[in-house]
């Protein structure tokens, strides 16, 4: 039920077009009228319809025709005006029907970085019967897309919303509109289908990850005590030890078989530490993001240390996702975490 506060936070950015429900009262009214829901069915309860500018111009034309008919006492000019007027009235039904019965739901959620267009897949389904045409959907700070469900029963539309800040992106209420069939009327609705996408900080690739990470050999992890990289110590021969490790000089002196022991250490593991970076919070997060991406690309294991949280070193997409998620949500309160999925 906090859909409105989400859209209100989106409007804080003055660069964005304010959605028409930016008024608090209207937003609250809209929330009561069309409550947010994962799947919304369009009906007379939530479809609005009003003449467009062309519609008002058309009404002006009708008025002129009626005046002409009166002044010229011409029945067929009356007839023309009435025919066009009736057509206008009938298209109310057509335009309304074009949206009525559609069901709209979130299909797939994606994530991206600040400055990118985050993809949202929206599924639109229509009831059986005549196909629907000329329907567009879109978010106020995205781009409208045509929904092609004339021949098919359902269609998945990819919408892109520009990500401006890290954290959860709530595009807010989505516009569903149609001008079909004559463009004189517009039927529309604003639906909240609980759409949200995760926005990661904008990555900064200015410097290499190593230079700012703690990198000490002794912090390495022994991965193979019988490795061959580094000499560790000497001990008495146990059958099975490799013969080439036997210290023959010592055997010559003491008649005792002694073997040299070696061990293998992992490549130095990377720790990306928030506190060791300079700059403001967002800059630090951006650089950490850059490190994480670079490290993943060069297949280096890395861990993340944030003031409140630590992620053990790891590698792979899942690990990266986890790291990026932490970076994206750094400093955000738990309340803003998604409450469902």
């Amino acid at each position: 039920m906090n859909a409105f506060s989400k859209s209100a936070s989106a409007r804080n950015d003055p660069a964005k077009t304010a959605p028409p429900f930016s008024g608090k009262r209207f937003g609250a009214w809209l929330d009561r009228r069309i409550p947010p829901s994962a799947r919304i069915n369009l009906s007379q309860a939530n479809i609005f319809i009003f003449p467009t500018r062309s519609g008002f111009a058309f009404a002006g034309l009708l008025l002129m025709l009626i005046l002409g008919a009166i002044n010229y006492q011409n029945s067929l000019v009356y007839g023309t005006a009435f025919l066009l007027g009736s057509m206008f009235v009938i298209t109310i039904l057509y335009t309304f029907r074009n949206l009525s019965g559609l069901s709209i739901e979130m299909a797939e959620r994606h994530s991206g970085f600040v400055g990118e267009h985050i993809e949202f897949s929206v599924r639109v389904e229509r009831p059986k019967g005549r196909g629907r045409e000329g329907i567009q959907i879109g978010w106020p700070n995205g781009y409208k897309q045509w929904v092609e469900i004339y021949d098919t029963q359902a269609s998945v539309v990819s919408l892109y919303v520009t990500a401006e800040r890290r954290g959860w992106l709530h595009p807010g209420r989505m516009l569903v509109e149609t001008y079909f069939p004559l463009g004189l009327l517009r039927a529309w609705t604003w639906v909240d289908i609980n759409a949200r996408g995760l926005v990661y900080p904008k990555p900064l690739f200015s410097d290499s990850p190593q230079s700012h990470s703690s990198k000490h050999r002794d912090e390495g992890v022994l991965i193979d005590p019988l490795g061959s990289d580094d000499f560790v110590d000497l001990r008495g021969y146990v059958p099975g030890d490799p013969i080439r490790n036997i210290l023959w000089r010592s055997y010559a002196r003491s008649d005792e078989l002694v073997v040299k022991r070696y061990a293998s250490y992992q490549e130095p593991r990377l720790w990306f530490d928030f506190d060791q970076l300079s700059g403001d919070v967002e800059e630090k997060l951006s650089r950490l993001t850059g490190f994480a991406l670079t490290a993943t690309r060069s297949e280096q294991e890395f861990g993340l240390r944030l003031p409140q949280k630590e992620i053990a070193p790891g590698l792979g997409q899942l690990h990266l996702d986890q790291v990026l998620r932490e970076l994206a949500l750094y400093g955000h309160s738990e309340a803003e975490q998604p409450n469902n999925g």
Binding site: L67, I70, N71, Y78, G79, F82, L83, S86, I90
Partner: peptide, 26 residues
């Protein structure tokens, strides 16, 4: 189809819309 479906309403308006005298010269 639109024009055809508009005909009944057109007929109703044609019959009932009050016809008045010319408003100004033309």
């Amino acid at each position: 189809a639109l024009i055809f479906q508009a005909l009944p309403l057109t007929l109703v308006l044609f019959l009932l819309f009050p016809r008045i005298a010319p408003l100004w010269s033309i």
